[in-house]
Design a protein around this nucleic acid. Structure first.
Lengths: 242, 242
DNA sequence: ACCTGAACACCGTTCAAGT
DNA sequence: ACCTGAACACCGTTCAAGT
């Protein structure tokens, strides 16, 4: 028998919960229907198909991501704080973020963070292509690090553990180094160390403008300036479409 | 009717080819059987099941990965060359590398590269925990960057392209920066810029030993020194097992 | 406008049976 | 020792039919 008032939002809520907890691969249309107490085919009416259901979850995630407030006294400190905040946000929603990534919406998701970084780069006296390099390098650093961390925690017990691979012999008579490489890395510390190192180098070029030319970028005005981010939620009549 | 002499290696070769070209998700047992001209169930006899078939491919990939020869005059240049070579290797076998990663064999795969990096760190006068930091920071940097690149090239056309997001207004009156951030990044250049910046910072601490303590790591000898990497190809009788 | 069950074409895997 | 087809329990999706 039919149940009353199944809404699109109800479907999305249930799906989001399942994906957040178990990842998209464990979201099955039949399982979702069972959880909602409807027939599988009802879900199809509301969301079209599995793929566009996931698309909708991604849209939600992107618009849910809040602003980032830098903290710290110097631009370098504030850049690191942005990087840390970003890392936290990404690590908290691993599955959904991965889906955002796969769908090519990363740029839109990162816009607020990029704008913060631009502000700090300017405050540190960096402009133009150099500032752009800093922004992108930090962004890639954060996203890359998070991806590696994710892969690490998903990975099963390391088969030949690092401790077995590193001994004093292979470390060139540097037992302290062997010891350090044998244990698991402190991911938070490694992250901060790397971001600080990267930031220090790239901000240093602000002091010595002739030091390391980032690239030969022409200084031009963009062709068609736009006011703000276009809101592109698609108009839809019959939810699923074909 | 039965065909003659299907071997385990034949199965692995065909599977490796399919995975290399189309990724693991497009490797189906039925498709593989069709390509080999056998019944699906024959494959099960040789490799057990789909999961252990993929495991076998991963084992192959890890042992296939060759040594890395650093080039350049200074340690910094040689470190960057190792990073570039590593990036190339990873980008060339994306699917297989991802599988190695998922199965937690990354450490073993990276051991040669790590050893090269240790040698260069020592040559630059960096030892102990600081050298370990450099090795790991570079490794994470490379792997992270490659993962981001992979995600980018897999991603469909960016929905709100970066050009639409960045205009002079949102860039704080820095049209050169807006222009730089609006176009697609030069990934190779960004990679080299980042690795160079990271390396420069982390090697700099070799000159000023009191500058930035990496951590308070005790200097101890490891407990059970071992000679080399254990060869752990499992003994197997009936290939599949259960 | 919304929901339904039946059916289709796929999966990976197991099993008893062949030679 | 090696290969086979049949069968099972799953998928996502479509469709004609209900109300």
């Amino acid at each position: 028998m039919a149940r009353a008032a199944l809404t699109r939002d109800e479907v999305l809520d249930a799906a989001a919960d399942l994906v957040r907890r178990h990842g998209p691969e464990l979201l099955t249309m039949r399982g979702l229907a069972a959880r909602l107490g409807t027939a599988v085919t009802s879900i199809y009416w509301h969301v079209g198909n599995r793929e566009s259901l996931l698309d909708a979850l991604v849209e939600r995630t992107v618009s849910d991501l809040g602003e980032i407030r830098p903290s710290g006294r110097t631009p370098a400190q504030r850049i690191v704080s942005v990087a840390r905040a970003l890392r936290r946000q990404l690590l908290d929603r691993p599955h959904l973020i991965a889906m955002v990534h796969e769908r090519g919406l990363t740029e839109r998701m990162f816009l607020p963070a990029q704008q913060s970084l631009v502000r700090e780069a300017h405050a540190a006296g960096l402009r133009g292509a150099r500032a752009a390099d800093l922004v992108r390098a930090v962004q890639f650093q954060v996203v890359g690090h998070v991806l590696v961390e994710r892969n690490r925690e998903r990975a099963p017990a390391q088969h030949p553990g690092e401790q077995e691979l590193w001994d004093a012999a292979s470390a060139g008579d540097d037992p302290a180094l062997a010891q350090a490489l044998a244990g698991p890395p402190d991911l938070e510390r490694l992250f901060v160390t790397s971001v600080e190192a990267l930031t220090r180098s790239l901000l240093a070029s602000a002091d010595a403008p002739g030091g390391r030319p980032a690239d030969d970028r022409r200084t031009e005005v963009p062709k068609a300036p736009r006011a703000s981010i276009p809101d592109r939620r698609p108009t839809r009549r019959r939810p699923g479409g074909r």
